[in-house]
């Protein structure tokens, strides 16, 4: 595991998630440093999404979550975005019957700096020009990839420090997956710290600087992305070699 740094942006200690009697996440600990692009890879049902939802306080969990100098595990989910922590939920979760523009506006719901919001909106339209073209279209009528872009754009409207991305490649055509990851790289390059949960291990490791491998609720490997890509266990289990 990565050496224990005193001021990690996000740090989870002994995170534990149960669904009824079934343990989905079994006391894992990990950290994300400011400016990093970290991925959490693993098979279906390994507990990746549960981990991310627990971080975003969407499901009950035990253990400690340190974010900056606060304990996230003592905050309600709606209080996170104003602290710079944004979640892009699995399955995109756009507001299907609102327009693209209205969706993006919802991302800035907690803010009231009107001029800054307008500036951010233009920045996001520049980053994701498809959204600008479709600004007045209802989100439910967008393609899967466009909806994913919208979900990311909406999260960015909250000016996050840390972006939690849950399976952004899910259900998308390969070409669209490439585009979505291109956006993720750009966002990271702009200084947003990213924790990415992804089943597409190869793409995730190629994109990120560091990675954790999850297996039935536990973190089994933690290393730099390059080392993980070279690791024979990862190659055998997740890269299909």
């Amino acid at each position: 595991m990565n050496s224990h740094q005193p001021y990690a942006l996000l740090e989870a200690l002994n995170l534990d998630v149960h669904y009824g009697g079934i343990a989905a996440v079994k006391g894992i600990s990990f950290a994300v440093e400011e400016g990093e692009l970290v991925c959490l890879i693993g098979a279906n049902g390994a507990g990746k999404t549960s981990t991310l939802k627990a971080l975003a306080r969407m499901i009950p969990a035990s253990g400690e979550i340190h974010y900056r100098k606060e304990r996230l595990d003592q905050l309600p989910s709606h209080a996170l975005i104003s602290r710079g922590l944004a979640l892009v939920p699995e399955g995109r979760g756009v507001f299907a019957r609102l327009t693209v523009a209205e969706n993006l506006a919802m991302g800035a719901y907690h803010r009231n700096d009107t001029a800054e919001i307008a500036a951010d909106l233009n920045r996001i339209y520049a980053l994701l020009p498809r959204l600008k073209e479709r600004a007045e279209q209802v989100a439910g009528t967008l393609s899967g990839g466009e909806q994913q872009m919208l979900a990311i754009g909406r999260a960015l409207m909250g000016r996050p420090t840390l972006l939690l991305l849950d399976e952004p490649s899910m259900g998308l055509a390969p070409l669209m997956v490439e585009k979505v990851f291109e956006v993720i790289r750009t966002v990271a390059a702009q200084g947003v710290t990213i924790l990415l949960v992804e089943q597409n291990a190869r793409l995730a490791l190629q994109t990120c600087t560091r990675g954790y491998v999850m297996e039935s609720g536990k973190i089994t490997l933690a290393d730099t992305a390059a080392n993980l890509l070279a690791d024979p266990r990862v190659r055998a289990a997740y890269l299909g070699e």
Binding site: I81, V94, R97
Partner: peptide, 24 residues
Amino acid sequence: SRIGRAWVAIREDELAAKAAGINT
């Protein structure tokens, strides 16, 4: 209103509404 938009957001997707900072 702001409240009206929050209601619509909850109707559309509660999880996303929470993530957007709405006290659902």
